[in-house]
């Protein structure tokens, strides 16, 4: 058990290091962006003195490495700085948006993960059957379309024609939970269709990969039912690859949903970031990027830990 805890701590430490490296890359990237916030806000013909004063106010006159260190120290204390554009605290600005994005991601994964696992196991169980072929074709089709296209199709079908769900997902803080869920159903469905295929196909492939192992043959020779062979004998050994793909897709749900957010006018983090890039609101862009990076690292870390924990060799050392 002690070995496991050391491993977990090691991984967490590595994750933090990665995050630090990423923060540097983000900072440098934003630094290299063309354009200047001062001229962007004050206009091209602002007096040089005004620009100078404005820059000093925002702290842009300091050298980059000092600003980087200030920024990192601030973030560690939970202070992301203030927005250039509207002088609001970034943590306030992000907080609500992040909660929305996470809500949508959580809701999508609550539908997509169990659904794709079950479908993947069934596809492995009835390999090459009509069901297997049908679900493979369906999922391939669904990832082949761009998300906005699927979103519009869903809107036309369920919102315009049938009138079951709203086409706008403009949620706010005071909405009761069920109404939020109701408003988020269409975007969640869109994203489910986008991530379902990867997870389902990986589950199927990971299990089928194991079906040639001697211990599966042994299970068959014990006269076990096919379902038990797949679920009890193959699945527990397939968690590592499945968890990796699930984690990547969950990260995708948080990080790459901007298109879906725009289509459904959903107030999420992706939209905030795009808006901020347009107005050169650099601290907000940095903060959003950092949150995205942290999500990615955290989810991948979880996948790593799951593959470690599901390996009995590590869990039960000699």
């Amino acid at each position: 058990m002690g070995k496991l805890i050391t491993l977990v701590i090691q991984r967490l430490g590595l994750g933090l290091l990665t995050l630090l490296a990423v923060s540097l890359i983000i900072f440098l990237g934003v630094e290299l962006l063309p354009g200047d916030i001062a001229t962007e806000i004050l206009g091209q013909d602002a007096l040089p003195e005004t620009v100078e004063v404005f820059r000093r106010e925002l702290g842009l006159d300091k050298p980059p490495h000092i600003r980087y260190i200030d920024w990192v120290l601030g973030v560690i204390q939970g202070d992301f700085g203030t927005s250039f554009a509207n002088q609001r605290e970034i943590s306030d600005l992000i907080g609500f948006r992040l909660a929305n994005t996470l809500f949508l991601a959580l809701m999508t994964s609550a539908i997509a993960v169990p659904f794709s696992l079950v479908c993947g196991v069934l596809a492995a169980l009835y390999r090459n059957s009509l069901y297997d072929r049908a679900i493979n074709t369906f999922t391939l089709t669904s990832i082949s379309f761009p998300e906005f296209f699927i979103a519009y199709i869903l809107i036309i079908m369920f919102s315009q024609q049938l009138g079951w769900f709203p086409s706008l997902s403009n949620v706010d803080m005071d909405m009761p939970l069920w109404e939020r869920i109701y408003k988020c159903l269409l975007p969640a469905a869109t994203m489910t269709l986008a991530v379902f295929a990867h997870m389902m196909r990986q589950t199927r492939a990971a299990i089928i990969n194991l079906l040639a192992s001697p211990y599966i043959e042994m299970a068959n020779l014990k006269g076990l039912q096919r379902f038990r062979v797949v679920v009890h004998h193959a699945l527990p050994n397939a968690w590592a690859p499945i968890a990796t793909v699930i984690a990547l897709n969950l990260a995708y749900l948080v990080v790459s949903v901007v298109v879906v957010e725009v289509v459904f006018v959903y107030p999420g983090l992706g939209q905030l970031m795009v808006d901020s890039v347009i107005v050169r609101d650099l601290p907000v862009v940095q903060a959003c990027s950092l949150v995205f990076a942290a999500t990615y690292i955290l989810l991948n870390l979880t996948a790593d830990l799951i593959s470690i924990v599901t390996n009995p060799r590590l869990l039960h050392p000699k």
């Binding site: 192992s213 211990y215 043959e217 042994m218 014990k222 006269g223 076990l224 004998h233 527990p236 009995p312």
Partner: peptide
């Protein structure tokens, strides 16, 4: 019918026990 015989009336001992035991159980 074959399944109901396997493991009960006819059983099998494999060459590599290390590979034929499921590592997860």
């Amino acid at each position: 019918d074959k399944r109901s015989l396997r493991g009960v009336r006819i059983s099998y001992v494999a060459q590599s026990a290390a590979a034929s035991f499921n590592p997860a159980h």
